[in-house]
Design a protein around this nucleic acid. Structure first.
Lengths: 167, 167
DNA sequence: TGAAAATCGTTGCAAATGGAACTGACCCGA
DNA sequence: TCGGGTCAGTTCCATTTGCAACGATTTTCA
């Protein structure tokens, strides 16, 4: 909002984007995606919230439960229980952080690493449906824009917009 | 989309889009959005899953619980309980469908209609954060693309991709 | 027409989730 | 160094959710 290029456009903000047209599809895709993965990974005893932790570990191995919670935007209680389940199923193991005895470091087991291709195959099958009819450019634009949007939420405390003086 | 301009490009589908880069941000935005709305609507005793039903009723008043469930991609049990809560709080009321005595028709009360501006204000505040730094064109492109993606999931039965012969 | 199948809604049950309280460990400043 | 504040993790409790079974109604079709 601090650059002035946009404000020079003659029809910049005449029409405000309807928030339902953004958040509705996001919720719909999220729920469909979740139900899809639950069903696909049921045979591996990987529950609804758990595969996202595996996905995160695939490129950030050895992080703490709290880090996982923050990156996935779930409570640390949920993170603890998901890791516990994954540990019981043999997908991850935990070691105490030697430099911080409060924290664990969560690592993938061989079994956990073997799930990578399986999970990715399921995810790709889903995004193939999602993106059927998209050109490659459209996929890239979408990827860039949704990333650009999501990182706006990443700082803690974006959510409380103001004092609730509007009611 | 069916034009062949893209297939002439030399590097069309060489790189497959990483599904995590799509579904990760979607889950993150969804959870942040949900937590945000729960907190903002707590004072009105509108729970986490309930405001989405109100949003749907704002442009589809008088539909059945099952229709609401399908449009929001939740179970009909969840839909029934959400409507029950909204009814107890005085936001909606139900009438039996005269032509189908199994079904209800869910209508907004005056109190429910009054919530519209409040909910929209909260939603807009959230999308303002989400879209801060977006040009108007980017917002529109994003809106179009996410809608285009979501409707791919709308047909029942898209999720089961095939027989599970991959494990 | 009449029985089987499908549809709408409800409820019991199990799983997932967040908030808050709690324990143990770390950190910072007087 | 020691005491309060912070942080990682766990657990209790309440809420939310989906699935499956069920009752009541409607639809289908032979």
């Amino acid at each position: 909002m601090e650059n002035s290029r946009e404000t020079n456009l003659r029809e910049t903000n005449l029409r405000e984007t309807d928030p339902r047209e953004i958040l509705g599809p996001i919720a719909y895709i999220y729920r469909t995606h979740l139900a899809y993965m639950v069903k696909e990974l049921e045979a591996y005893r990987v529950g609804s919230g758990q595969f996202e932790f595996l996905l995160l570990l695939y490129y950030k191995d050895g992080v703490s439960q709290e880090t996982l919670a923050k990156e996935l935007k779930v409570s640390k209680a949920t993170s603890a229980r998901a890791i516990q389940s994954l540990e019981e199923e043999g997908y991850v193991y935990r070691e105490r952080d030697e430099t911080d005895l409060r924290a664990y470091r969560v690592y993938l087991t061989d079994k956990g690493k073997e799930m990578r291709d399986i999970i990715f195959k399921k995810l790709t099958a889903f995004t193939d449906i999602l993106f059927s009819g998209f050109t490659f450019e459209e996929k890239e634009i979408f990827r860039l824009l949704i990333h650009k949007a999501a990182i706006k939420l990443f700082e803690p405390g974006v959510e409380p917009p103001s004092d609730r003086s509007d009611d």
